[in-house]
Amino acid sequence: MAANSSMTSGVAGRYAAALFDLAKDAGTLDAVQQDLTDLKRMLGESADLAEMVRSPLLSRDEQTRSIAAVLEKAGASDLTKRFLGVVAKNRRLFAVRGMIDAFAALLADFRGEVTAQVVSAHPLTAGQTEELRETLSAQLSRKIQLETSVDAGLLGGLVVRVGSRMIDNSLRTKLSNMQLAMKGIG
């Protein structure tokens, strides 16, 4: 059972574990994951939606109706709509981002995948992304999911984080290290 995982501590983890078990039993893991990914994107794009899920000032009914309307418009699956309705009725929408992240972690673990966060100075091409995925997969002997982002401040290179391991091959770090080394010479 997913609820026994160390990834499922706290309110968000317990709810995510329950949703994971329901989705697995219903054979709708991919649909629920897509719904949650879409919701996370919407939360990031809409300050009003983000405020609605956090606000203790809205009543239970207002939050329930609001999240139901958002999910209906987004075309979410029935399981996702029912689940988030329960979350709203239980006044736990404030933890929805944590639930989304915990669900993604449970799904990745179930599939034997590892997520690598990759920050690059410039957007990676499809070929570079695939080559990086294959290289990491070969080194870690696991399927790799990449979460990419861009930070122009890196100047060049990559920063890759897999779990607690980090590989910083950015030009910014190399220049910083060189600057520290030069201070010792002078």
Rank of each mutant, 00 (worst) to 15 (best):
I185T: 08
L71R: 03
T28P: 01
S66I: 03
M7S: 10
A95D: 09
E113K: 10
G98C: 02
L43S: 09
R91V: 05
G75R: 13
S137Q: 14
Y15W: 11
L22S: 15
V11A: 13
A102C: 09
F20L: 05
M178G: 02
D35C: 07
V118D: 00
L136C: 09
S77Q: 15
M52V: 09
K73F: 05
D35A: 13
K73N: 08
T80V: 07
Y15C: 06
E45I: 11
F20D: 00
N90P: 02
L158I: 11
V11P: 10
A69I: 04
M1C: 13
S66G: 12
F20V: 01
T8K: 03
G184V: 04
A74C: 14
L39S: 03
L57D: 13
K143Y: 04
R92F: 06
L49N: 03
S137L: 12
M166W: 02
V118M: 02
I167K: 00
A68L: 11
G186D: 04
H122L: 14
A68W: 00
S164N: 14
T115F: 03
G112N: 05
V86K: 13
L84D: 00
G184I: 06
T129H: 09
K40L: 11
L58P: 01
G163K: 14
G13T: 12
E45A: 15
M99R: 00
Q117W: 04
G85F: 07
T173D: 04
R161F: 10
E131K: 05
S176M: 08
D48M: 06
I185M: 12
G184A: 13
A152Y: 07
G44Q: 14
R65E: 12
L106N: 01
R14Y: 04
A104E: 08
L71I: 07
N4F: 14
E130H: 07
L49Y: 09
E131R: 15
R161N: 05
A18T: 12
I144V: 09
A152V: 13
L106F: 07
L107E: 03
L155R: 02
G186Q: 15
M99N: 01
A17S: 14
A121K: 10
L93M: 08
L22G: 08
A2H: 03
G186N: 15
N177Y: 04
A68K: 04
Q117P: 02
G13H: 01
L158N: 06
G127M: 12
L43Y: 04
D78G: 05
M99I: 06
D35K: 11
L154V: 03
L136I: 08
G157I: 11
I185D: 15
Y15H: 08
R97M: 06
L175S: 12
D109S: 15
V96N: 00
E51C: 08
L43Q: 14
E51D: 07
V114T: 11
G127E: 14
I167W: 01
A74D: 05
T125I: 09
A17K: 00
A31G: 10
S176C: 06
Q34M: 13
A26G: 07
Q179F: 11
A17H: 01
L175E: 04
A12M: 03
V150T: 13
L155M: 10
G27H: 09
K73I: 14
A2P: 13
V114R: 14
S6Y: 03
V119I: 14
L136G: 08
